[in-house]
Computed example of a mutant assay.
Amino acid sequence: MVAAMLSAVPVSAVIGENRQGPEISLRSYGRSGAAHSHSFAQLVLPLAGAMALEVAGRGGVLRRGTAACVVPGHRHDQEARAANRFVVVDVEAAALGDRRLEQWAGQPFLPVSPAAGHLIEYMGSLLAAGTASSGQATLWLPLLLDALQPDRPVAVVPRLAGLLAALEADPFRGWSVAEMADRAALSPRRLHALFRQDLGATPQGWLAGLRLARVQHWLTATDLSVAEIAYRAGYADQSALTRALRRQTGLTPAAYRRQERSKLRQS
Rank of each mutant, 00 (worst) to 15 (best):
G117L: 05
G59E: 14
V55R: 05
P72C: 09
A67R: 00
R63I: 04
V89A: 04
T131S: 14
A80Q: 00
G65L: 01
V87E: 05
E79Q: 13
A67M: 10
P72N: 05
A94N: 05
E79F: 15
A80W: 06
N84E: 09
W104L: 07
E102N: 15
E102D: 14
Q136L: 12
S113E: 08
S134M: 10
E121I: 08
L53H: 05
E54D: 09
S133E: 12
C69M: 13
W140Q: 10
L119E: 05
G124R: 05
A116K: 01
D77N: 14
D90L: 02
L148Q: 08
V88E: 02
L127D: 10
Q149L: 13
A116L: 07
G97F: 00
S134P: 08
E79S: 14
P72S: 01
A147F: 03
A94L: 08
G65A: 08
R81W: 15
V112F: 10
R99D: 13
W140H: 13
L96K: 07
H118T: 15
P142K: 11
A116F: 02
A147R: 01
H74K: 07
R100Q: 11
A80C: 01
T131V: 12
A52T: 11
V70R: 07
D77H: 15
P111L: 03
V61N: 00
R100M: 12
E79A: 13
V91Y: 01
G73W: 00
V112I: 15
A105C: 08
Y122M: 14
P150M: 03
G65I: 00
L148E: 00
V89I: 12
S133K: 04
H118Q: 14
P108N: 03
V55A: 08
A82F: 05
L139M: 12
G57Q: 10
E102P: 07
G97R: 05
G73Q: 06
P72D: 01
R75G: 06
A68E: 04
V70G: 06
D90H: 13
H118I: 13
Q103D: 02
A67V: 08
G106A: 12
